Amino acid sequence: MSEIALAAKEAVGASFSLDKMKLARDRTMEAVHRIAGRVRPGMTELQAKELARTVLEDMGMDRIWHGILVRFGRSTLKIFSEKIDPDNRLGEDDIFFIDLGVVWEGHEGDAGATFVVGQDPRKLACAAAARQLWDEVREKWLHDNLAGPALYRFAEERASAMGWVLNPEIRGHRVSDFPHAIYKAGNLGDFADCPDTGLWILEIQIADPAGEYGAFYEDLLVRA
């Protein structure tokens, strides 16, 4: 890919601000944790989605830029494009994740994390592993300046070594001042250069080897 083509995939608008990208990241992750703190066993995915929208409105968001996703139990194996199961209820010893795409001050936040209700040790380990793997891939980006495909090869190798299975369909994406979609950047996992700071979301989704549940973590790749 030419330098011009690569540069086009990291284009930003006239209003772009790295500080506002960081603010959007922080506010979105704050919302993820606020919502998770109010999720309870017995709640359906639809009820959790409605709760999430209420929390975001109370926090003063500009708008939602991608659909609210809340996955319970086996639905944590689903990829982004699959619909929620509105009647799926969270169990007493269960796992769930929240994925939000929200605009704050004209900039796109995208954050997701996995949580566990109860004390199932394997589910707790799965949730922790998704975050740990995200951190390891970010460190690899920081220190080795790897391009997108190499980052996800590293993620797959590390997931396997940790005893989990990486979902290869989840490969990260661009964010920017709203809307990033005009830049046609494709997936981070296909981006043939080291991603610049504040422009890409690193997504990690793993599953237990038995394929009964999974975990998800995503955040903005930023150098400071």
Rank of each mutant, 00 (worst) to 15 (best):
M1T: 06
S2H: 09
S2K: 05
I4N: 01
L6F: 00
K9F: 02
A11G: 11
V12S: 07
A14G: 06
L18F: 06
L23C: 01
T28P: 04
H33M: 01
G37L: 14
G37E: 11
R40I: 10
Q47K: 11
R53Y: 13
G60E: 03
G67C: 01
I68R: 00
I68G: 09
D87Y: 12
N88K: 14
N88E: 14
R89W: 03
I98H: 02
I98E: 10
E108F: 01
D110F: 07
A111N: 12
Q119E: 15
P121A: 11
A129S: 15
A130N: 06
R131K: 15
Q132W: 05
L133T: 05
D135Q: 15
K140V: 11
L146D: 07
R153I: 10
F154N: 04
A155G: 14
S160F: 02
A161S: 13
M162C: 02
N167H: 14
P168C: 03
E169Y: 06
G172Y: 09
K184P: 02
A185L: 04
G189H: 14
D190H: 09
A192Q: 14
A210M: 03
A210F: 03
G211K: 05
G214R: 05
F216I: 08
L220W: 10
A224K: 14
A224C: 02
